[in-house]
């Protein structure tokens, strides 16, 4: 394991009314790790991600980010890519990547002008080149393939230099060939940017191929008459020998 704990969950519960989604989740995620999260549908994987994102607060327990209590809102230190709807359909490819730079520098207008704009465009273009979308910067998302849209979503998030990148089934809708390319890309970005990644996936092979650690969420207890009574928790926590800088060893 590399680095100190960046994200810590202490006895976290998530409940909606009397539906328990997550219960007794206690774990720490080290800086620089690549955590793959697997589990059956409805096990609360997306909920877990929303906790780390700050989009949702636990009903019991607490979440700490970089040593401090998690802020209750999503901020620019955490990037996110969803399976769908991650990019803005009304902005061009370049516009989508510029968005984050514009928001930071112009909280009132959300637009940059003059040299600031030129500098931001250069930065955005460099990011697009890094994900292999340099040639498509003037297109709209509707004109991109699914794989290109996910590349764009990655570029859009990474241009903000987040400390954590959260991926919710980012490659779930892609065909196996494109998926392989995306695995290479995300591995390269993870190393180059020194990222901490938490990725939810339904593909166990993908989890073991990419992760430095695999977390499996599932219910330990099950009440056949009231399935909502017990929540899921991390039932398996498998550290792998993959390192950000080195070759991967199978576990």
């Amino acid at each position: 394991m590399t680095g100190a704990a960046l994200i810590e969950l202490h006895n976290v519960w998530v409940e909606y009314g009397d539906t328990v989604v997550l219960e007794r989740v206690s774990l720490a995620i080290a800086a620089g790790s690549f955590v793959a999260v697997v589990g059956p549908s409805g096990a609360g994987k997306s909920t877990f991600l929303r906790l780390i994102l700050g989009q949702e607060a636990p009903s019991r327990g607490h979440v700490r980010f970089a040593g401090a209590p998690m802020a209750a809102t999503c901020g620019p230190d955490r990037g996110v890519v969803f399976q769908r709807y991650s990019v803005f359909p009304h902005l061009t490819v370049l516009g989508n990547v510029l968005f984050g730079l514009e928001c930071a520098a112009a909280p009132l207008l959300g637009r940059l002008f003059g040299t600031a704009r030129t500098a931001a465009r250069d930065e955005a273009r460099a990011m697009l080149d890094a994900v292999g979308l340099g040639h498509a910067q003037d297109r709209y998302p509707a004109q991109l393939s699914g794989g290109m849209q996910q590349r764009l979503a990655l570029a859009q998030a990474l241009v903000k230099h987040p400390r954590v990148l959260l991926l919710d089934e980012p490659f779930g809708a892609l065909d196996p060939g494109i998926r392989g390319d995306m695995h290479d890309l995300v591995t390269r970005l993870w190393r180059d940017h020194g990222l901490t990644i938490v990725m939810v996936t339904h593909d166990i092979a993908e989890a073991f191929k990419l992760g430095t650690r695999v977390l499996a969420f599932d219910k330990r207890r099950h009440d056949p008459h009231a399935p909502q009574r017990y929540g899921a928790t991390a039932t398996y926590d498998v550290p792998l020998l993959r390192k950000p800088d080195g070759a991967k060893a199978a576990s």
């Binding site: 989009q55 620019p76 968005f99 859009q156």
Partner: peptide, 8 residues
């Protein structure tokens, strides 16, 4: 959510 994580 995405917009917020991008600083909006």
């Amino acid at each position: 959510i995405k917009a917020q994580t991008l600083g909006a």
